[in-house]
Write a protein that binds this DNA or RNA. Structure first.
Lengths: 246, 246
DNA sequence: CACACGAAATCGTCGAACGATATTGACGGA
DNA sequence: TCCGTCAATATCGTTCGACGATTTCGTGTG
């Protein structure tokens, strides 16, 4: 298992990172940051699967960066819980069992509710309302297209918009969104169509409450959203949560 | 300013880190982890102050580690918001303004309340009750001793105990405790004696609710604790929050 | 077939090096 | 005297090569 992009590329054995690309704020991202983002993106797109072993020589060659920069990136991802580092055994994409996922939901929920309340209180300009509505529409479109990578990207963008508008930047740091990407990537391929649609529809309700500047409804919509996700998790079959020990 | 440990040591120009020390679970900590912990500890103890410039050559010499390991550690701390990295200008201990602190409190509060509820639900054994009571008593003792470094260490241990007992390890990852250490270190020297005592007394009330397995009271006690802290922040003079731009 | 042994693979850490950028201070002209 | 320009320095970002430590795995032996 887990050798999807293994043989995909052979020539041009370097740099599939967006070299020296600016990071939204004009500053160029460091090599390690680009690696982190590439791996995260790879997880969302399904190129990296939970449990997969990340080999340093392989990655340095494929990404065209030095071992030092790669190790910085892996360290960063390990701190975020995206990869697990085993001394002398290497890095693995983390695997979440059912309890971890439920714990993650318990942790994320109050933060998401806070974020939604703040966004609802703070969504004052037309540009902000537009941004939320576009983000929600994008999620909806990706859901209908059944494009899993796109869906996870846009889900992330939705949260980013909500947090931005809310204006509490500490929240952006604390919310375990990357770890949630991991869990979503693990679940996305297994859940039923109905569960997928149900989950996607939650974002529209949250958006509605936010653009109407209704913090109470926004809070409630997020709560319902999480309750639904919990229900889905309970319904998932055991094989959705690999038990293979690291 | 901020050169306390500068001249303290002259010979044995290396390794004030606990070499190869085990990290509670038997595994030896990596060099970068030891550096992170040393810097964090230095912040709590006051050896590093917000705004201080961290020079790589200086730190590698003082800590006795390579530049690569140091940079891994700085990257980690930057991700946690403890230090700020400026491209080609180096690393600085982060500085929190009043809004950031209030945002941090808003973010931390729901997580702390969740942690307290879980701990209250889960505090079943005598050992667990004992651990909470000892942690609370330790905070109290450090407060009376007016030992700021000790107080911050034990405050951290209190939260660790609460989270451990609660059993939700995602919470441990998400709670911005290190960033709170930063804010506490910034505030600790400025707040009045009354404010200090008031804050410290909150932990006893939280502990009481937890050992009595009363989640509702635990939640309420944490809420009151945070309300008190917010009040303190509002009362603090402007000079408690450096505005010197990085 | 179980077990010991050794080779290969991989990781953790270090040291040196080079280019890129910010900061600093000197210099000269208005 | 003051201010702008330019070179020197300090520091960072990144890469490369090297060494020891540890795990993993294949092989030979009893």
């Amino acid at each position: 298992m887990a050798t999807s992009m293994k043989t995909a590329r052979k020539s041009a054995a370097a740099n599939e990172l967006d070299d020296g690309k600016t990071a939204a704020d004009g500053t160029v991202a460091s090599a390690a940051d680009r690696v982190s983002e590439t791996i995260l993106q790879g997880i969302r797109a399904g190129a990296f699967v939970p449990g997969q072993h990340l080999l340093e020589p392989d990655l340095t060659r494929r990404l065209g960066i030095s071992r030092g920069s790669l190790r910085e990136a892996l360290k960063h991802l390990a701190a975020a819980g995206i990869v697990t580092l085993n001394r002398f055994r290497g890095a693995y994409i983390s695997t979440l069992d059912r309890k971890s996922v439920l714990d993650l939901l318990d942790t994320l929920e109050p933060l998401a509710r806070l974020g939604a309340r703040l966004a609802a209180e703070n969504c004052g300009t037309d540009a902000q309302r537009k941004r939320m509505q576009v983000a929600a529409a994008n999620i909806d479109a990706a859901t209908r297209e059944r494009n899993r990578g796109l869906y996870l990207d846009r889900r992330r963008q939705f949260y980013d918009a909500m947090i931005d508008i809310g204006g509490n930047m500490e929240l952006a740091r604390a919310m375990p969104l990357s770890r949630t990407d991991l869990f979503r990537a693990q679940v996305e391929t297994i859940q039923t169509e109905r569960q997928r649609m149900l989950h996607a529809s939650g974002y529209a309700k949250i958006t509605k409450a936010i653009v109407e500047n209704d913090p109470v409804s926004a809070d409630k919509a997020v709560k319902k959203h999480f309750d639904g996700t919990r229900k889905t998790i309970h319904e998932l079959p055991p094989h959705a949560f690999p038990s293979l020990e690291i």
